Amino acid sequence: MGAEALKGKRIVIAGSQKTNEMSVIIEKQGGTPIVRSLQGLTIFEEAQVADPLRRFAREGADWVILTTGLGADNLIKASEKLGIQKEVLHRLSQASIAARGYKTTAFLKRIDLRAVVSDDDGTMGSLMEKLESIDFAGQRIWIQLHGEPAPELEQRLTEQGAAQVQSVLPYRHIPPERETLDAILSQLAEGSVDAVCFTTAVQVRYLFSYGMETGSVELLRAAFNGPVLAAAVGKVTAEALRSYGVERVVVPDIERMGAMIIEISRCYEAVE
Rank of each mutant, 00 (worst) to 15 (best):
E177N: 09
S133I: 11
Q160N: 03
L157V: 06
G138M: 14
L153C: 09
I184H: 04
R140C: 06
R178S: 12
E179A: 15
A137E: 08
L181Y: 04
Q160L: 15
G161Q: 03
F136R: 05
Y171G: 09
V165K: 01
A163N: 09
I134V: 15
T158Y: 15
F136G: 12
R156G: 15
Q187M: 13
E179P: 04
L157S: 04
D182P: 00
F136P: 06
I184M: 13
Q139R: 14
L185Y: 09
Q144R: 04
R140K: 15
T158W: 14
T180L: 07
Y171N: 08
R156F: 12
Q155A: 15
L169D: 09
L157G: 08
L153W: 09
P170D: 07
Q164H: 15
E154Q: 13
P175H: 02
H146C: 06
P151H: 03
L157P: 07
R156L: 14
I184Q: 11
D135S: 05
S186D: 14
L169W: 08
D182G: 02
D182M: 12
E152D: 14
A163L: 07
V165N: 01
Q144D: 02
D182A: 05
I141M: 03
P176Y: 07
I174K: 10
I174V: 11
W142S: 05
Q139D: 06
E159P: 00
L181S: 09
G161Y: 04
A162H: 03
D135F: 00
S167D: 01
Q166P: 08
A162L: 01
L145P: 02
H173R: 11
L157D: 14
